[in-house]
Amino acid sequence: MSAAVPDVKEIWNGRIVEVTLGAGPDQGGTRRTTVTVGGQNTLPFLHFEGQMPHKPVVAVEVRDQAPDDWSELLVQAWGDVLSDPAAWAARAEELGAEVIALSLDSAHPERGDTGAKEARSTVRRVLEATGIPLIVYGPGQPDKDNEVLVAAAEEAAGERIALGNCEEKNYRTIVAAALANDQLVIAKTPIDVNLAKQLNVLIGDMRLSRDHIIMDPTTGALGYGLEYTYSVMERVRLAALSGDAALQQPMIVTAGYEAWRAKETRTGEGVPAEWGDWRTRSLLWEANTAVTLLETGADIVVLRHPDVIPLVKQAIEGLMQDSPVA
């Protein structure tokens, strides 16, 4: 028994740009593995209508100094490595991280005010301790970002690292550093399709090639604006697939960072009993943020809790299974 069902395949004429993070010895770097994302010409995981040649990957957040405001659950889960970025990164790799997202938090004027020298040393040590690609984030303050990201870009020359965050206010310096050292940038804009596109155009106008740009559309956590990111990412991806070249960059989302800022994850006491077990809730808060963003087009998901890594990787594996559906 069968009926004629209309064909609902979309014919997209756009494709997401393939971006490779990390470089092995034959490309002038030292990474044992590299990661390529993008290349798809379909909405996420719709294998019936197009190709998704690269699976989304999991990056794990590492800080250059022990965070003083993290949830106790995270502190316990990571333990001693929190005070040593190299050990932390190595541990993250063991636990399944495919990319390390290193944050040079100590460079912030209010949190240590370290400079280029310290940045170089941290980047060097993390590179030596791991074999996977690296993303380096500045402290998010334009002057210091310029200082430490330029240093990081130089120190990691040849490694094809990604520099973040490249924003409208500081893009010129960061793009220049990326151009000079053949690194990538993470172009971050605040939850808006137009702003995302504008920054990509500005970066493109500086002649950084498109396979060096990853977009961060800004993540809202579950319960805290997740729906805005969900819709913005869908709109970005639809425009990209419809042929808008300025939006065809792979997307990175910081699900861990955002989920662990929520009240639901930060505290286990003094909250309603209906919120259930603190650890279960927190892990699922991060995991469900990640799942929702994967469904709308995330190519790199940056996570925080070690036990969420296998959960998200299992979901990605399930989503990448191309079992035929009639």
Binding site: I11, N13, K197, A239, L241, S242, G243, A245, A246
Partner: peptide, 17 residues
């Protein structure tokens, strides 16, 4: 033209924007 350019052709499948 920079990356802002749209590629050729119409967006037949553009169910979104």
């Amino acid at each position: 033209p920079g990356p802002g350019a749209r590629s050729e052709g119409s967006s037949e499948g553009g169910s979104g924007d």
